[in-house]
Design a binder for these strands. Structure first.
Length: 757
DNA sequence: ACTGATTCTTTTTTT
DNA sequence: AAGAATCAGT
């Protein structure tokens, strides 16, 4: 017991050993909140004799859930089977599987990921002849998910104009389609589960009396519906222990509601909030930067992080010419870090949006530095995997129209749009699924009616095996049925194997020129199935499919080798690295331009920046570029406002050696030579505490011209800006400047007194 | 019905 | 830039 609690500071100890009551723990970044949460659970079990069976813990990601379980088992030599630990979605899924009948779902309901959901919506919209110019499927999807997050059904959507009326209709039609096919999207998992508990008092009482202790991680990211779900589960007796940090709320776009923290205080009669403010992660300068930045937000709960460690190094800022230049810089620095003894897995490379990873990956690949990308295109979202999963879904549930549509003609078996339209028409007529319609057709076409009636007990497949068709609808029916038969008694990995061989997917990708990688992934799917049955207590096909949808990102074909960690800032939440590169600190990118139009958008971006900064333990690089390829065209950006919100005294500006002139040169107006070197330039890195070799690099090259595209300038009247275009030469030379405040203007170089920065 | 080519669209963050 | 959707030719 004392071993369990040793090393905790006062506040942590207080939180861990709280009596049976609800509590709100305000825990800053790096203040040991996961430790508090896991120790609390271990403490409850060990010292308070609480049964694991009556504990429910909600985490934000599957990764966090796994880590929590691992940590608890490390602390306690007991069986933690009965404990419910998972994400909101995972736990709702678990509940719905257990009570599928009460929830009005088929036994093998299918979980739709966002892409699947979009496909269904497109299908539904087409089916009712909606104008997809006026109602883009994406927007409909957004509308439906928002409504669900608010706990509303299609019929309950508030209608105040034609548009919302239409949207409500689409939602209802989509709802109907999902019910027909036994499909459940992410938001539906929560809503169904919530409705189940509201409508079924017996179940609600059962669960609320079972779970005496409910613990919630990342509470600031819970949505309204999730909070309501928690309240139902808690009932009146449970002690609800929530841990959160309002400054790290970065999921408002998904319905996260920081207001839940205030509501919680009130609803659960919290008398005193426990604050964890001592940071054990980062050196002082990093913390100071984060603290100063986040102070620009309004309406925060009061909290200030501090550390007993020293200031450490200043934050290193690098102004790159292009995104390639930025990537090259990062590669170079990462190599130095590695040479200095920092493991690659201890280096985080963060960016605002997934699209930014590509240039970085390219540079890392060429430098043969091992790296691992998290997020982005996830394993279970790759097309070959999606195809394979669709076959598996057909095996599990033939009424899954979505799956059928995906594979009915892949690999090609001669079923074109005509046959498909006919099939869809038939299905509509019969009021059944596409599969049922196909089966009907097959029966009628392939076997005389009397015969099929006579042989009702014998599978018609068996009777027709001799002249098995190789093309067309019938071949598909035969294929799926034979797969089902063939998989009946097989363990999961062999089902996958069987399916891969017989579906023709393997042959298809083997024949493709670029198919090697996809083949590898398909093979990896067998491995995923193998490791799944080892971990899960129910290794059935249906649960595996649910796992694939819910944990799309968890499975990576890469192994555990030491590698640089690439990810978005969002996915970096909760992680820490010895050194962090935060790239793309440019206006429009970070803060993202889309955040401009959203209420509270900028503050959410700032919190995101706060999360990014606080990932670093010892060293932090901040970089931005003057020009960047985005969506196929070069864009010129000015540095992020967030850089200016960090005190200059904490920053050290780096200037690179110009190894080659990468800059675009402006014809005719490059007479002026660069003057004295920037006083802040010079050493690229300096000697550091963790043994990085000292290396001093001077400026060896000069920039070709002071005035070039991408150049940062200051104008006496318009302020700071960046050159985005130029024309003419000599005394006619003019440049177009995008000012941070004054907009974009053409200026004559002869008259406008521009100063370069 | 399939294929290859061309045009069009998309671009924040995630369970 | 990369994918999806559409189109023309086989």
């Amino acid at each position: 017991m004392s071993l369990l609690l040793s090393g905790l500071n006062n506040e942590q100890l207080k939180a861990v050993t709280l009596p049976h009551q609800s509590a709100l723990i305000l825990a800053g970044a790096g203040s040991g909140k996961t430790r508090v949460l896991t120790t609390r659970i271990a403490y409850l079990i060990q010292s308070r004799q609480v049964s694991p069976h009556s504990i429910l813990a909600v985490t934000f990601t599957n990764k966090a859930a796994k880590e929590m379980l691992a940590r608890i088992s490390a602390m306690l030599p007991i069986n933690i089977q009965g404990m419910w630990v998972g994400t909101f979605h995972g736990l709702c899924n678990r509940m719905l599987r257990a009570h599928y009948q009460d929830a009005g779902l088929p036994r093998v309901f299918q979980i739709l990921d966002s892409a699947d959901q979009l496909a269904v919506i497109k299908r539904v919209l087409k089916g009712i002849g909606a104008d997809d110019e006026k109602f883009p499927p994406r927007q409909v999807q957004w509308f439906i998910n928002n409504a669900k997050d608010e706990g509303l059904r299609g019929s309950q959507v508030e209608v105040y104009d034609d548009f919302t009326r239409k949207m409500g209709e689409f939602y209802s039609a989509y709802e109907q389609q999902c019910n027909k096919e036994g499909m459940v999207d992410f938001a539906e998992l929560l809503l169904r589960s919530y409705e189940l508990l509201t409508r079924n008092e017996i179940l609600q009482r059962h669960y609320s009396s079972r779970f005496n202790h409910i613990l919630v991680d990342e509470f600031q990211d819970t949505s309204q519906l999730q909070y309501k779900w928690l309240k139902l589960l808690a009932g009146v007796e449970a002690a609800v222990f929530v841990v959160g940090d309002d400054d790290q709320s970065i999921y408002a776009f998904r319905g996260a509601n920081t207001g839940n923290m205030k509501d919680f205080e009130h609803d659960f009669h919290i008398s005193k909030i426990i604050k964890l403010e001592q940071n054990y992660r980062s050196h002082g300068n990093i913390l100071d930067a984060a603290n100063t930045l986040i102070r620009n937000n309004s309406g925060r709960l009061d909290k200030n992080l501090w550390t007993s460690e020293g200031h450490g190094e200043p934050l290193r800022v690098y102004n790159a010419q292009t995104d390639f230049d930025e990537a090259a810089f990062i590669v170079k620095e990462a190599k130095f870090l590695q040479a200095g003894g920092v493991r690659l897995s201890q280096i985080g490379l963060l960016y605002r949006s997934n699209a930014q990873s590509r240039v970085l990956e390219h540079a890392l690949f060429n430098a043969s530095l091992a790296y691992r990308v998290y997020g982005g295109l996830r394993f279970f979202e790759r097309q070959e995997i999606k195809h394979a999963l669709a076959y598996l879904r057909m095996i599990a549930n033939q009424n899954d129209d979505n799956a059928l549509l995906r594979i009915i003609n892949f690999p090609a078996r001669g079923i074109g749009i005509r046959s498909l339209e006919q099939l869809q028409f038939d299905a509509k007529q019969q009021g059944g699924s596409l599969w049922q319609a196909a089966l009907e057709k097959y029966r009628v076409g392939a076997i005389p009616i009397q015969e099929s009636e006579d042989m009702a007990s014998v599978s018609h497949i068996e009777s027709r095996k001799a002249d098995k068709p190789k093309k067309g609808l019938n071949s598909f029916v035969v294929l799926i049925e034979s797969m089902q038969q063939g998989c009946l008694e097989l363990p999961l990995p062999e089902i996958v194997d069987h399916m891969l061989e017989h579906s023709g997917l393997v042959d298809y990708y083997r024949a493709q020129r670029e198919g090697a990688n996809r083949l590898e992934n398909l093979n990896e799917l067998i491995n995923a199935a193998t490791s799944y049955i080892q971990e899960a207590d129910d290794g059935s096909l249906a649960t595996f499919l649910a796992h694939a949808s819910l944990e799309a990102g968890e499975h990576q074909s890469g192994n555990n080798q030491d590698a640089l960690q690439l990810m978005t800032v969002h996915s970096a939440k909760g992680l820490e690295f010895h050194s962090v590169f935060l790239s793309g600190l440019e206006e429009g990118l970070f803060p993202h331009e889309n955040s401009r139009n959203e209420v509270g958008g900028l503050e959410e971006e700032r919190r995101l920046m706060y999360v990014a900064l606080t990932r670093a333990q010892r060293r932090l690089y901040l970089s931005f570029t003057q020009s960047r390829m985005l969506h196929g065209q070069t864009r010129y950006n000015i540095p992020s406002r967030f850089l200016e919100e960090i005190p200059d005294s904490l920053l050290e500006w780096l200037r690179p050696v110009q190894e080659e002139v990468i800059t675009q040169q402006v014809s005719g107006i490059m007479e002026q030579e660069l003057g004295a070197a920037d006083p802040r330039s010079g050493m690229l890195t300096r000697n550091s505490k963790f043994g990085i070799q000292d290396r001093t690099l001077g400026i060896t090259g000069m920039e070709a011209s002071q005035w070039r595209i991408g150049q940062n300038v200051v104008h006496a009247k318009f302020g700071t800006g960046i050159i985005v275009n130029c024309e003419g030469g000599g005394s006619d030379a003019r440049v177009q400047v995008k000012f941070s405040q004054a907009g974009t203007k053409w200026l004559s170089l002869e008259y406008a007194k521009l100063v370069s920065t």
